[in-house]
Simulated scan of single mutants.
Amino acid sequence: MTKIFEAVTSLREGNFVLIHDDDNREDEVDMVISSSHITPEHVSTMRKDAGGLICTAVSKEISTKLGLPFIYDVLNIFGTANKTISLINQNSSPYGDKPSFSITLNHVNTYTGITDNDRALTISSLANICSELDTDTDLVDQQRIIEKFQTSFRTPGHVPILIASKGLLNERKGHTEMSIFLTKIANMTNVTTICEMLDSHNYKALSYKDAVDYSKEKNLVIIEAKELIAYAKSYGN
């Protein structure tokens, strides 16, 4: 409970939280931050200190309102006319989960989309739209926000979007779900930016031990999946 409270507080204050998933799953540590607080400096830190793929995760509810699909489903439809895509799309991850990837985005005011400034603009703009959707708006306002989303971004882009399972940790126990669950219990907009931490010495995922050392050096909270899963059961998720 103490660790979860510390993680929630860090997210609210715009700081990174490190999340380690199960040893029998990916066994990876992700850097996580609320997308509502993202800055170019945060993107730079994730790029240099973590080194994995910088993605933005949204709740299933938000993705439904915005009309964002799982890329798996898009490719499944396309696969009816393309045998290669059909066959590749049937291959699953070693731990059995379907990928949470949706489309990739760039904000229309970005140039290449890959710079720290460009990615921060894309992520923060998406977070603002998600925040607007979170407010108590009528159908007319909701449609206006959705149209704003449709005209503010282009795809493909340089920010991969991830969609959390509707049942969060009851359904899937990935970093996508864990990070969105944290925003849920923090009463924040359900949108996070996450990045796997890699080891440039052995070219593998950063070990939990080294991630703990990093968290101490940077004064960051690190939390394990089992702690979040246990809390989710008591929380009713």
Rank of each mutant, 00 (worst) to 15 (best):
P69H: 10
N15F: 06
S63F: 02
L139V: 12
D22W: 01
S215L: 05
A120L: 07
N109I: 04
V43R: 07
I229G: 01
L139P: 03
G236A: 09
I222L: 14
G14K: 00
P94H: 04
V221N: 14
F70D: 03
K60W: 04
H20E: 15
G113K: 09
I185G: 09
L206H: 00
G167Y: 01
D134S: 14
I62H: 08
S34Y: 05
S86V: 00
Q90N: 13
H107N: 15
G236R: 11
N106T: 08
T151Y: 08
N202P: 10
E41S: 12
T192D: 00
E177I: 01
N190F: 03
T2Y: 13
E28G: 02
L18C: 05
E224F: 05
M197D: 03
D118R: 12
K173Y: 00
V43I: 15
L182T: 08
T115M: 05
S34V: 00
I88W: 15
I4Q: 12
C130Q: 06
F16Y: 14
D134A: 12
Q90K: 14
N117C: 09
H107W: 06
Y203I: 12
L75V: 10
L168P: 00
K65P: 07
S102W: 03
L121F: 08
A81V: 08
E171W: 02
V8N: 07
K204I: 07
D138W: 04
P156R: 02
V43K: 09
D134W: 03
F70I: 06
F16P: 05
K218R: 11
A81I: 08
M197Y: 06
D21T: 05
H20T: 13
L169S: 02
S131R: 04
M188C: 01
A225S: 14
S215Y: 11
